[in-house]
Design a protein around this nucleic acid. Structure first.
Length: 1109
RNA sequence: GGGCGGGUAGCUCAGCGGCUAGAGCAUUCGCCUUACACGCGAAGGGUCCAGGGUUCGAAUCCCUGCCUGCCCA
């Protein structure tokens, strides 16, 4: 064939990824192949297909989980780009506040032996910035090596100036609308890092501890009205109370069970159980279950906290676990807490989330007895110290021991205040970053009021259930947000239904600093233009600042907060660079809040900030022009399920709120435009078009072989670059795509390679497939290149570029093999389309794997060998099939397909009816698209279209019959040790000759089965050394290969066993009385036919066996 | 505690009312058949976690239990 010279360079012997990947990548970049043009969308020349990358955080390099995530996005983006959509894949990274700061703190400690506090804030932030630059480059490099077709000219970082401007504006608008407020709440406090940490930044770990049993003396507090009890705590009000001991005698008369067991004239007590005795300093009540038989007797009584002297009420709350002896049923009895419980719960609202809830229910005061460093302190909301001053200043553990010691040393009546302790193992929250035990801590934090109907409720309102057909992956939806797989919609909905306000302040240095300056105005707000209060008002009227008088939350009012804070003013400054305002505020004693925003605040703005919101003309005006209009809403967000609550929800809420009419464009902002939250709430509910994306695709999490999540700390992470080095980027991508099944997790057993790197042999699948594609293409190209004169002539009439403009039609009706191949191609195409439309990536990969390997390589290429050189028609089918397959594979394997295309794209391929390899006219073939096609790069060529009309059931059925006959002959050859190179003769019985001798079938049979002749079986006894086998009840003979009778007998015996099994199954089915009556008649008939056939084959096989033995 | 998954061949996973339950890897046998040994041909290998129910028919739908993973409290 090679002597028929073409001017095409031969493809190299093997595909070596490392020899091509960088070169191909540079071609894409040089051609600006991934640069989106919003104008095409705005001029209505193309539909948009936008995807925002979930910005990887800059703390570490990417692992295979990210590789999967980005492979999926690239597949979607590349497929849509080929379909003519205007594709934008927005790349970037996330600053990941606490995680990054912690990593850098650790690094600085290791390298310089210094703490954060040894640096100025700016100095330390610069160090983190440098670290970020380093890892951002690593991550970007990883994504590019993977071949990710992001719009790299538009890469963003959540803390760059453009994103910072978006954060500022969003904060301002939310603040102005009253959706951001400052409040005292219980947070998870890390006493080492001295910051609040989010729930997801904590982990639970069981530790050994004790339950301590402390006795609190019972008193009357008659001087107080029950409703006024809150005055009893804090600030030295205790002297107004005259606590009068309650005796056991009195308790007995009130009907208190067991009171008689104690000395009648002595002071009575109750016992609380706690694992953290030191927090008793913050107790503001003791709670008892209303169903506890002791509750009635205690109603109206108080206890006096030892040492402190605080008199606190006994409240009834069904949260309290009944002790074992009072359990009302088995469930209560078996509650492990019941064994440890006394029935009395000390209530410390400022130091325990459950107690906080009880405190809220009963209107209890909040007493904070601890400083931010975790030591007992009387400086942070605790003033009625009493004799407890000897505990002040002690760290948690020491205070605990001291409390126990003091209780032991004291008595109530003649009995010890300390009843005892029991060892216990309990789960305690620890901080991810410092590993310290997290303290529930009452502190001042900023909150987003996501409980507002414009937030959580609105986010649920835009939720759309996936429709049954689901052919919507192109994002051509009417709006709303749809989850794939559908079940995740529930996670999203439940989250919003139970949502609590979102604490957004973090006591960190790395992040967006909260743009609020607080201080005292002169208080008068008089008309003196130099008065700061007056100026703030003026700026507010101009839309430059927003003033918030200190918002007093319930918890706040209850805690005895610093009275001087009561007249605090918080001023949110809108613009980053409004120097006049900032300077004036600071001169007047206002200070910017030292805290930064939770990372997810800026992440929540990602679909807006990356597109230039709120003012695309301010930064990168050329790149940003039109972006926002063209690409928000985007089409799909691809992420993992734990992100639903952290990120998806918040993007929907922010995008919805900030894009809703009336929240104010900066240029149009009016001072009176917002503020009243509830009045305008209804009109501000987001429309379906204000969603940040239409689809959310949740993909599997990659685990190691033991089912653990991949992570740096476990050391089970696999670096995509290692896989790319050993297997190639395409192999990795295809394998990951193939693994992306509709399940929650996939396991990836990890091995160490000789150099100690983590790897996995699972990627052999993709590497082998890439090689197969390469070789098939190489071979197919050589076939198309091998032309006779007639073909050469026709080449002038056909177009270049793999059929782009060809008009030649097939003049010869295609052979069975060609009809079969086109039918398979049509099925494969339909499967691919369906899979991509429904985010079924495994099915996408599997369909193409089978189409290329099983159909195209195993059968079509083999079958075509003897005929293709003489058949232009067959060359056309081959060319179309290969071109379509290569195009469909490009999104998954962009490099190898692009290299193949360098050759395939130059070959002229005649058109085949039903296969379209040009751009769909749904899209305007405008100059932009034309110039892209003209680059000759595969990534800009058209996605194929294969008509359903090419499905040919008859051809497939005939082909399958031929194929089973081939398999039988091959089986005979294998069992009789016939060399592959040895041609054999097939003798065909008369009853089968119509099928076998058919011009469609016979040549294929000869090719596939290695036959030198197919002849009618002569009458009479079989020739010497013949082997007989039956196919469709007809006995075929292969002469000259039969050696051992034993071999043949064994083969037949096995066949008989199989057939008997089939017959038994089928007979059993028909013997079932209900089957014939109730199953569909067609199916019953099919079973009968099948049985007849199998019985025939069985008889024949038995007869053959009889002859052999 | 609430919610969501998974338990199918030695391993990793498909199949989710009706083909003798499939694929890749691994295993066995035969092949350097000239696109491909990262390959070709053939073969072995499964009480589809357990128990109950619905159905003519269940790996597939329902219930219970066991094991296992994740998310949210």
């Amino acid at each position: 064939m090679s002597q028929t010279s073409t001017n095409l360079p031969e493809l190299p012997k093997a595909y070596k990824p490392s020899e091509h990947e960088d070169r191909v990548w540079n071609q894409w970049i040089a051609a600006k192949a991934f640069l989106a043009d919003p104008q095409r969308v705005l001029r209505d020349h193309a539909k948009p297909y936008a995807v925002f990358i979930p910005p990887p955080n800059v703390t570490a390099a990417l692992h295979l989980g990210h590789a999967l995530n980005n492979t999926i996005q690239d597949i979607l983006v590349r497929a849509h780009r080929m379909r003519g959509y205007e594709a934008l894949w927005m790349p970037g990274t996330d600053h990941a506040g606490i995680a990054t700061q912690a990593v850098v703190e650790k690094r600085v400690m290791k390298e310089e032996k210094k703490r954060r506090s040894d640096f100025q804030r700016d100095e330390f932030v610069a160090k983190i910035q440098a670290f970020k630059d380093e890892y951002e480059a690593v991550i970007t490099g990883q994504l590019q090596k993977m071949g990710c077709s992001c719009d790299w000219d538009r890469q963003r970082f959540t803390m760059d100036e453009q994103c910072a401007a978006a954060v500022r504006e969003a904060f301002f608008r939310l603040f102005r609308a009253g959706l951001i407020y400052r409040g005292k709440r219980l947070v998870n406090w890390d006493p080492v890092l001295q910051t609040a940490v989010a729930d997801d930044e904590c982990y639970d770990e069981e530790i050994d501890g004790h339950f301590y049993y402390l006795r609190y003396p019972l008193v009357h507090a008659l001087a107080l009205e029950p409703g006024a009890t809150r005055a009893g705590a804090g600030k030295g009000h205790t002297h107004e109370i005259d606590p009068k001991p309650v005796t056991w005698d009195e308790l007995a008369s009130r009907g208190y069970p067991g009171a008689n067991d104690h000395p009648a004239d002595q002071q009575a007590w109750i016992t609380v159980a706690t694992t953290r005795p030191e927090t008793y300093l913050g107790d503001t009540a003791v709670a008892i279950n209303p169903h506890d038989p002791r509750a009635t007797a205690l109603r109206g009584l108080f206890v006096e906290l030892p040492l402190v002297g605080r008199v606190i009420p006994i409240v009834e709350d069904s949260y309290v676990v009944l002790p074992e002896r009072y359990a009302r049923n088995d469930e209560e009895k078996n509650d492990p807490k019941a064994k440890m419980a006394t029935g009395f719960l000390k209530v410390t609202p400022a130091h325990d989330p459950n107690d906080y809830e009880i405190g809220m229910r009963h209107g209890l005061p909040m007493v904070n007895m601890m400083g931010p460093d975790g030591r007992v302190s009387d400086k942070h909301g605790w003033s009625d110290v009493g004799d407890a001053h000897l505990l002040v200043g002690l760290p948690r553990e020491k205070a605990r021991a001291k409390v126990v010691e003091e209780f032991k040393a004291r008595t109530v009546g003649t009995e010890s205040l300390f009843e005892g302790s029991k060892p216990t193992r309990h789960s305690v929250k620890h901080s991810d970053r410092s590993k310290a035990i997290v303290e529930p801590y009452l502190s001042d934090q900023w909150y987003v009021r996501v409980t507002d109907p414009r937030m959580a409720q609105a986010a649920n309102a835009v939720l759309k259930k996936a429709s049954g057909t689901g052919h919507q992956a192109s994002g051509d939806t009417e709006g709303g947000v749809t989850f794939f797989p559908e079940r995740y919609a529930k996670t999203y909905e439940d989250w919003h239904n139970g949502i609590r306000d979102w604490c957004i302040s973090r006591q960190l240095w790395w992040g967006h600093r909260i743009p609020v300056w607080s201080g005292h105005s002169t208080g008068g707000w008089q008309d003196d233009p130099n008065d700061i209060g007056h100026r703030i008002k003026k700026w507010q009227a101009e839309g430059r600042v927003q003033l918030q008088h200190r918002v007093v939350e319930l918890a706040d009012a209850l805690s005895k907060s610093n009275p001087s804070e009561d007249s605090f003013e918080s001023v949110c400054v809108r613009s980053l660079d409004d120097a006049e305002v900032i300077q004036a505020l600071e001169t007047n004693g206002f200070h910017q809040d030292p805290d930064v925003l939770d990372t997810w605040f800026s992440s929540a703005l990602w679909p807006l900030s990356t597109l230039g919101w709120p003012d695309p003309s301010k930064f990168n005006p050329q790149m940003n022009a039109g972006l926002l209009e063209a690409f928000n809403p985007s089409q799909v967000l691809c992420t993992a399920r734990e992100i639903i609550t952290l990120w998806v929800s918040r993007m929907v809420m922010f995008n919805g709120y900030l894009k809703a009419p009336g929240t104010g464009h900066p240029a149009l902002a009016k001072p009176d435009e917002t503020s009243d939250a509830s009045a305008s709430a209804q009109s501000l509910l987001p429309s379906a078009s204000s969603v940040p994306f239409h689809h959310v695709f949740i993909h599997a999490v990659i685990q190691d072989g033991e089912g653990r999540k991949m992570s740096k700390s476990l050391g089970n992470g696999v670096d995509p670059l290692d896989i790319i080095a050993t297997h190639g980027a395409d192999a990795m991508r295809f394998t990951l795509c193939h693994m992306a099944t509709n399940t929650q997790d996939v396991r990836m057993p990890v091995k160490k390679d000789p150099s100690g790197k983590n790897t996995s042999e699972k990627f052999d699948l993709g590497r082998n497939f890439a090689t197969k594609l390469w070789n098939a293409s190489k071979f197919a190209l050589s076939m198309i290149g091998a032309r006779d004169e007639e073909t050469k002539r026709s080449r002038d009439e056909v177009g270049a570029g793999g059929g782009e403009t060809s008009s030649l039609r097939l003049s010869v009706s295609p052979s069975l093999l060609d009809r079969w191949m086109l039918s398979r191609l049509a099925s494969g195409f339909a499967e691919v389309e369906h899979a991509l439309a429904n985010y079924e990536f495994h099915e996408y990969a599997q369909s193409l794997y089978d189409l290329l390997w099983r159909d195209f390589c195993d059968w079509y290429l083999e079958g075509v060998k003897p005929t293709i050189a003489q058949s232009p028609a067959q060359q056309a089918v081959l060319g179309n099939a290969l071109s379509a397959i290569v195009r469909m594979l490009h999104p998954a394997m962009p490099y190898v397909t692009e290299v193949i295309w360098e050759h395939l794209g130059k070959v002229k391929i005649a058109r085949v009816d039903g296969v379209r390899l040009t751009h769909d006219d749904r899209f305007a073939l405008d100059d932009t698209l034309k110039s892209r096609v003209a680059t000759g790069l595969l990534c800009h060529q058209a996605w194929p279209h294969v008509s359903k009309a090419l499905r040919d059931e008859a051809a497939e059925k005939t082909f399958d019959r031929m194929r089973s006959l081939v398999t039988m002959i091959r089986d005979v050859r294998a069992t009789h040790q016939v060399k592959p190179s040895q041609r054999i003769k097939l003798l065909v019985p008369a009853q089968a000759s119509e099928f076998v001798m058919h011009a469609d079938v016979k040549p294929l049979l000869m090719t596939f089965a290695g036959l030198e002749a197919v002849e009618a079986r002569p009458a009479g006894a079989p020739p010497e050394a013949s082997v007989a086998f039956t196919f469709e009840s007809a006995e075929f003979l292969i002469p000259g290969i039969g050696g051992s009778k034993e071999t043949e007998a064994a083969r037949l015996t096995k066949q008989i066993v199989d057939l008997e099994k089939s017959v038994a199954t089928l007979e059993g089915r028909l013997a079932n009385p209900g089957y014939a009556d109730r199953a569909p008649p067609a199916m019953v008939q099919q079973t009968r036919d099948e049985l007849t056939k199998k019985k025939g084959e069985l008889d024949a096989a038995k007869a053959a066996l009889a002859k052999v033995s």
